[in-house]
Amino acid sequence: MVGRPKSFDNDTAIDAFVEEFWSRGYEATSIDHLQAAIGIKRGSFYAAFGNKESAFIAAMERYVDDVTKLVVGELEQNPDPRAGLSGMLRQVGAFMTSNNGRGCLLLSALAAPPELCPDHAKKLQSMAEYVMLRIADKATLLVEQAGRPMRMDADAIHAYMTSVLFGLNAMATAEVDNDSILLAAETAAVFLETA
C-alpha cells in the first residue's frame, strides 16, 4: 500500500517557518503556529520535521543561506577591509529599517538563545561563528593594512562590530523609528572609518 503523498512542499514549508519564528520568536512560536502556517495536521508535522527544534534549525539554516550569507558575502568581496566593515554596518542598518519590529532572526536567536538540545545548540553556534569569524578576519586585515596607528586593535574592532550589530537589532525589535536606526548605523560606520 502506498502512503498518502505529502500535501506540502518542503522548501515552501521551511520558508513559512522562517516567517513564523522571525515574527514571533522561538518561545512564542508553537507547533500549532507552524502547522497552521503550512496547513498540515500535527502528525504530519512530526513525521516531516520531527519537532519544533528541528523546524527552528531548518528555518535558521534557510535564513542564514538567504539573508546572512548575502551580507557576509559583500563584506568578504570588498577588497578594502575598512570599507567592507563600515559598509556592512550601513547595510545592516538599512536591513533593520526594512524589518522594523522583527530585526534579524539570527541576532535575535543569539541575543536570547532558546533552550535547544546540544546538537541543535551547536548548529546555532556554528551559524554565529560563520558571521563572527568573517568579521574578525576583516578586522585583522584592517589593522594589518592600516599603515598608521589605530585607536583599536583587531579584537576591539571585532567587539565594536558585534556590539553595534546587536544594538541595531535591539533597536529594530523595539520598533525604534527608522531614522534613529539609520543614524545609529551611520554614526557607527563613520566612527569605524576614522578609527
Score class of each variant (00 low, 15 high):
137 D>E: 08
60 M>V: 08
90 R>F: 02
131 V>D: 01
159 A>K: 01
96 M>C: 13
138 K>R: 09
170 A>R: 08
125 Q>M: 09
157 I>V: 15
33 H>F: 14
11 D>Q: 13
173 T>F: 01
189 A>H: 08
114 P>F: 11
149 P>R: 15
29 T>Y: 00
94 A>I: 11
139 A>P: 02
157 I>R: 02
175 E>A: 07
103 G>D: 02
15 D>M: 10
100 N>M: 02
35 Q>K: 15
166 F>C: 02
98 S>G: 04
97 T>W: 10
130 Y>N: 06
118 P>G: 09
82 R>A: 10
133 L>I: 00
8 F>C: 04
62 R>D: 03
158 H>R: 03
11 D>T: 12
148 R>I: 15
49 F>T: 13
188 A>L: 06
185 A>Q: 14
92 V>H: 07
12 T>W: 03
3 G>I: 03
195 A>I: 15
90 R>A: 01
12 T>N: 04
167 G>Y: 07
47 A>N: 13
93 G>W: 03
176 V>G: 02
16 A>S: 12
2 V>Q: 08
23 S>D: 09
124 L>D: 00
22 W>I: 08
76 E>K: 11
49 F>N: 06
7 S>N: 10
6 K>F: 05
92 V>I: 12
49 F>L: 13
139 A>Y: 08
33 H>C: 14
126 S>Q: 06
88 M>W: 05
102 R>F: 12
